[in-house]
Amino acid sequence: MPHLNAAQRHLVHFTLNGRMVRAEVENRMLLSDLLRHEIGLTGTHVGCEHGVCGACTVQIDGKPARACLTLAQQIRGSNIRTVEALVTDPAVLSPLQAAFRHHHGLQCGFCTPGILMSLDALLRERPDAGRKEIREHLSGHLCRCTGYATIIEAALDAAEEQRKEETPNA
């Protein structure tokens, strides 16, 4: 891999929500800015740009991580999922999204994309996740509106829904 000069843009390629993406970026381009400004996926939000608020959380190779603390150059060849990936059919909410709606897990919605990506990763890896794990994952997110309680209820509900779907004949 050559030395990438600061003055030029350089190619990165990675998988984004199941599709191969190639982009030409400056070395200092953050993943959050690449997603929002270059690719146009504005579901990933940016609150603090120093890792504290969690609004920019996406999944990098299945793990929730801060897009604002990741340089685009660091994700060459990785698999990135953003909140847009939760939509498979625009007319239908995913179980997690539906639970957020049902429990009023959002008000202004600024924190929501990041929280959804953390919880989605948790529930994929640990379908049996309980209140403790959910709270632990939420500690990486700031929400100024809800007070978190409704988010926890939504996540518990979604986890249960998901387990039902996965148990045959139940």
């Binding site: 891999m1 030395h3 990438l4 000069n5 600061a6 003055a7 350089h10 400056e26 070395n27 200092r28 953050l30 800015d33 740009e49 120093h50 340089l71 150059q73 060459r76």
Partner: peptide
């Protein structure tokens, strides 16, 4: 709140990283 520019090296060997 954006980084100033920098060169970026993704070395293939530890020796290359240490040389840099």
């Amino acid at each position: 709140m954006k980084p100033a520019s920098f060169d970026f090296l993704c070395p293939e060997t530890l020796e290359e990283a240490l040389a840099a």
